[in-house]
Structure formats: C-alpha cells, structure tokens
Design a protein around this nucleic acid. Structure first.
Lengths: 362, 362
DNA sequence: ATCATATGTTGCAGACAACAACAAACCTCG
DNA sequence: CGAGGTTTGTTGTTGTCTGCAACATATGAT
C-alpha cells in the first residue's frame, strides 16, 4: 500500500500529541487522554510508540497524593526534534537551536558592521548546526512575503529573495518571517499574551514594522509596514519615496538612544524635548488608529525601541488613538509592552518552525 | 461503539466530495477520484452512499468521445441541503434559498421604510422556509463580531446582538456577517475573483465598510469600518463621534444618486462638481492607502455606490493610493469593480452558510 | 470483430481507534 | 496493616475504513 488509509489518522494524532506536549509542557498520560479526547489505549499506543522512537521520555511512579494508580508522566525529548532560529538586525545576529518542548539547546550572537551581509553571517553563526535541525526560520525586519523581503528600511533591501540566498549560503531550506510577526508569535506562545485572539506587535528597529497574529498563528501577509503608514499627507519625504510616512515624521527617534535622552531631557524640564516626544506619540497613535481600524486587534504590544517610546508617551499615543478609532474597537483593546524583551522574535521564529513541523507531520 | 474510529475519516471524505461538487459543479467519478486523491473504489462507495441518501444524482452512459468506458456523471441534488441567505439594508431586504450546488431555489425582496425593524421583516420574508434550511446567514452593513453588530452607520445600531434577535424572531439560529465580507466571499466563489489570495471588497451603502477574505475564507474580524478611517485629523465631525472620518469627509456622496448627478454635471463642465468628485476620490484613496498598508490585499473591488464613484474617479483614487502605499504593495494590486453587482452579498452569505455546513460535517 | 483503454465493482487485507475486561498501583479508613 | 475504593495502564477483540488487485463493463480504434 502506497498510502495506508488510516495511517493519516495515526499521524494526525501523533502530531497532536507532540504539539500538546511542546506547548503545554510535561503531562501525565491521563491528562493527555483528556486533552486530545482520545481513548486511554490509543494514548498508550501512541506514547509507547513515540517513546521507542526517542521523541518522548516516560517517567513512571509519580505519586500524586490523590487516590488511584499514579499516571506516568510523559515529557518531550528536546534533542529529538530541533529548530534553528535566527534573528537578523542591521547591527547584530542572533542564533538559537530550540528543542522540542521549547528548551534552548544552543545560542550565540554576533555583532554586524555596516556593510556585512547578514546572510553570509548566518552561515557562519549556525555552523553545521542548522543542518541537523528539522526546520530553520529566519526573522528579519521588513515586509516579507513567501521567502522574499519586499521592502526593508532597516536592511535596505528591496525584493531580495532571502530564502534562496540563505539556502545557497547554508545548504538548507529556510523559512523567512518578519521580526514583528515572529515576536508576536513568541509573545503569544512563550510570553503572556496567550489569551489575545488578535495580537498586534509593533517593532521598532531602524524601521517600524508590525505583525498580526490571530489565535497564535501568523497570517499570510500579516507583515505590516507600520513605518509607511502616511500620517501627514504631503509631509516630509521618506526614503521609500512617499511623503509623510510615520517613519519620516518620527525621524528624530529612529534610534533608541534618542528616546532615552529625550525622556531624560523632558524630565528635566526641556520643553522642546517634551514637545518632540508628545508629537511622536501622537503620530504613532494616529498611524496605529488606521491599523486598528483596518485589522481590529484586541491586544497591542510595543516592542523594540517603541517600548521606550510608549512608556514615555502613553498618554499622547492613547489620545491620538482615541481620536482615530471607533469606541468599540478601542474598548476591547489592551496596550502593553512585551514580556520577552528582545528575545520574542527569536523565540517566535522557533515556534513558527515548530508549527510548520507539526503541520508537516499531519 | 459510540464513536467508531474511522467514521471521522469517512465523514471528512464525504464532506470533501460534496464541497468539491458544490464548488466546481457536476463532475464524473473519474474527475472526483483525481481531485480528492482517493481511490476509485472509495469514490464509488461514497458516491453510491450519497446517492442513496439523496444528496447526489448519478447519470450514467455519457459518451465522452474518447476511448474507454464512459464515466458516470455525478451532480448535487440542490434540495438535499439548503441555506437561507438574507441581505439587510436600511431600505430593503433580500432573501434567497440556495441549494447545494449553488442553485437559487427561491428568492424575494421587500422594501423597508425608515423605522421598520429589519429583524422582524426577516421573519416575514423567510416565512417558514428558513426553518428547513440547514444553515441561515444574514449579511448586514457594519462592524460585525460573532453575531453582534458592534457598529453600523447605515442601520444606526451599536452593540446589538442581532443573532439573538433573529433567533427570537424566526425560531432558528443565524450566522451574522457584514455585507462587505459576504460580498467578497460571493465574488470569490461565484464571481471572477477566484485567483485573488487576499481580496478586499469595499461596500458603499449609507456607510462605508470593507471586508477582507483570504483564499476565499472570511477572517474573524475581517470586517473593516472603512468609513471610519480618519483621513483628515481634526476634520469634520462624524456621527460616530470622531473627527475627519472618511464618511464625514465624503458626506456629499452618501447616496448614489449624488454621484450620478455629479458625474453628469462634471461631464457638462461643472467645475465645482468635478472638484467634489476629485476630492472624494482622493479621500477614498488615502483611506484605502492605510487599509492596504495594514492588510496587503492583492485585489480590491469597489462595490455598492463606490462602484460608481470609482468609475468616475479612478485617476484620483489611484494617485492618492500611490501617495500612501509602498510601491511593492501597489504593484501586485488590482483595482476592479465586482461582477455580481449587488447580488454578491446575498450569494456570499449563502456560501458562508455552505462553508459552515461542510465544516460541521467533518 | 478484436484489441486497447478507461472506468465501475467486488472481495480481501492492512491499519486503526474504541471498548471492555483485567491488572497494577495508589489512597483511605477502620 | 489489610480490605475496599479509585484511578490508570495493558491487552485482546471488534467494527470500520481505505487501498489494492482482479474482474467486469463500455466505449473507440484498427
């Protein structure tokens, strides 16, 4: 039989079991039985199967304190499935090898100079390790569509087929996602934004991007060029050729240090700094208003240097948002800062890889 | 056995077969075998099964002209599964009973006076027919979220639980979707926008709404309040409480007749009319720019009276769009008018119902 | 008329998950 | 400390499903 009939069902269940353990950590067989809505015997068969193939580790004899035979605890074996994750920025490169269950098995980081090509740096930093990984994902700031970076302010790329370049440099396939979407996935899966149904992550690097994630899954083209929302028709010229882009209008704040200085100066009574902060917050809020009206998220996270900007300018951001979105969209909306810091994108890239792995198993 | 193991697989295949026939029309068994990637014998079993249960009609002995035994043609029986679809506008109500395969079995329409409650009119127009339908879907203009209309300029509703009201009035469950999203689904499935991966439908009624459909499937919260994108910060006061909303700025064109008059006047050299048309087009293009940047569609359809506006003002719409979106997002974008006219929403509502029916079968 | 071709049909085998009965391992209570 | 209750793992059985192969059927080509 080329394609046994019920094998597919088996595979689906196997994938579901691994995904459950990956996302919710070690559990008893009994808990798995309930979570997957399968029979005890089915779970038993799957678990022993996966334990034999080295994907799971079963620990028996865990006295729970309650009546009845204690259930055997089953946990992932991280090394059995690994995903290579890379986060590219203009000034540095991060790499992590993440195992099944979410454990970070290896990690490293290098600085990039202006002029270095991040793609060849990826080949160096991953060494041979990416080859062993079941999936590999690279996150980078910009408008990403199916392996191609259509536009990236930070990296200065237009229509670069990064997936192909990465494959040429490392000898393996790569998924390419944008940093903001990756960070959103990371915050949803490994942060504390798990309840958000529509999560919008704003990322401030050298450019401003945003990523939309619905119920934890990134969307085709959920990559949003927040920095190129026009907030001032006919305003300042932007590097992209348009006028009045958020990025151009907020030019003064393209690097994080400026915000800290401005916040400091504003705190010391510098009216000009205060004014610049306020206006930046208002511009951000206005751009955000359009994005919120168009996408209707229920949670917004301010990441990268937008985190600092938001913490300094929450009031103008909120008031500008209030002036540009319907009360109904606003009322269900929470504005926060991410909990994973600048790790979110790397973790999210890994999770994106695992999602693909589980999908492929079915 | 309460839940036989492979029954689920059987159900999935049965649903897939019906969906295939519903969407692509009558086909031979051989074609189905190829499309569903199942064995001849499996298709045979499913087909005879479904023919016995009255869902399918098999016609044998269709000589195709090519060699080999002629394949039996299999077609849906429309009456076997029906969906009730309703399109609500402030001024009229449309009803259609659509059968499996897409055939419209019944249809009717009534005018509504200001002050009539559309919900009770739905009970009247559907009569008892909605009760027999397997699913029922109502499309209405506004921001719809899980059966509740959060905001509707046209109907003047805020946070009305329409699904509950419809159920109370008609004695059956209803899905509620917004007109623009429904129309997008309709154009995708029954119109000529089937290749569009991300389809944005703009609907002009008494308010302006938009609906986003990705690969033919409506998204949770794909309902967009286009009319309340702020195009003129601090501009005219809008009924919603904000200032500078597209709807408020385009107030002069809230009814279609005005556009026809303006187009006529502009054609006869009326500079003021020409100017108003141009400015309306620019406002629309600017709002659209923000939505495009935030959602990245590859096709935009101008429906309702926006169709007329677009036909009269394509140039300013396009140039304003060009000034507010990145070249990359624009290059893959097609702007068109719908082919189903004002039938799209009704057809799309029915398709939404069928999608739910097939989902439920799995 | 015969052969090649394409398709429907039938009997069989492999696979799988639910079920039920049994075994194992814990707790509690007297 | 032992009996009973409780929860969980294990094993053999059963019903269902799909793919396969062989056969039957209906057409066109030679």
């Amino acid at each position: 039989m080329a394609l046994p009939p019920a094998v597919e069902l088996r595979r689906r269940n196997r994938a579901a079991l691994l995904e459950q353990l990956h996302r919710h950590g070690p559990q008893t067989r009994a808990a798995l039985t309930e979570a997957l809505e399968l029979n005890r015997s089915t779970i038993g068969a799957l678990a022993t199967d996966l334990a034999e193939s080295g994907h799971l580790q079963e620990t028996t004899g865990q006295s729970t304190g309650s009546a009845g035979r204690p259930s055997t605890l089953v946990a992932c074996v991280p090394q059995s499935i690994t995903v290579a994750a890379v986060e590219i920025r203009a000034d540095r490169l991060r790499f992590a090898l993440v195992g099944l269950g979410g454990e970070v098995l290896e990690r490293s980081e290098t600085a990039l100079e202006d002029g270095d090509d991040p793609v060849s740096a990826v080949a160096v930093i991953t060494g041979g390790k990416a080859g062993d990984a079941v999936d590999a994902v690279a996150a980078m700031p910009g408008l990403v569509d199916e392996g191609t970076v259509a536009h990236s302010t930070e990296l200065g790329w237009v229509d670069r087929d990064v997936a192909a370049d990465l494959e040429a440099a490392t000898g393996r396939e790569w998924q390419v996602v944008d940093t903001a979407t990756a960070a959103a996935v990371g915050e949803w899966s490994r942060g504390d934004a798990h309840e958000a149904r529509k999560l919008l992550y704003l990322h401030g690097g050298r450019g401003l991007t945003a990523g939309l994630v619905i119920e934890g899954r990134s969307q085709r083209g959920g990559s949003i060029q927040l920095g190129h929302i026009v907030v001032e028709p006919g305003g300042r010229e932007c590097a992209c050729g348009l006028r009045g882009c958020l990025e151009a209008e907020m030019e003064a704040f393209v690097f994080a240090e400026d915000i800290e200085n401005a916040t400091l100066a504003a705190g010391m009574g510098d009216a000009a700094a205060r004014d610049r902060l306020r206006r930046s917050g208002e511009d951000l809020g206005r751009a955000l208003g359009a994005v919120v009206t168009a996408t209707g998220p229920d949670e917004i996270l301010f990441g990268g240097w937008l985190r600092e900007l938001y913490l300094s300018t929450a009031a103008p951001v909120r008031s500008a948002l209030a002036e540009t979105t319907l009360p109904h969209l606003r009322s269900k909306l929470r504005l926060r800062t991410p909990v994973l810091g600048d790790e979110g994108a790397l973790m999210g890239a890994a999770e994106t890889g695992f999602a693909a792995v589980f999908d492929r198993m079915r």
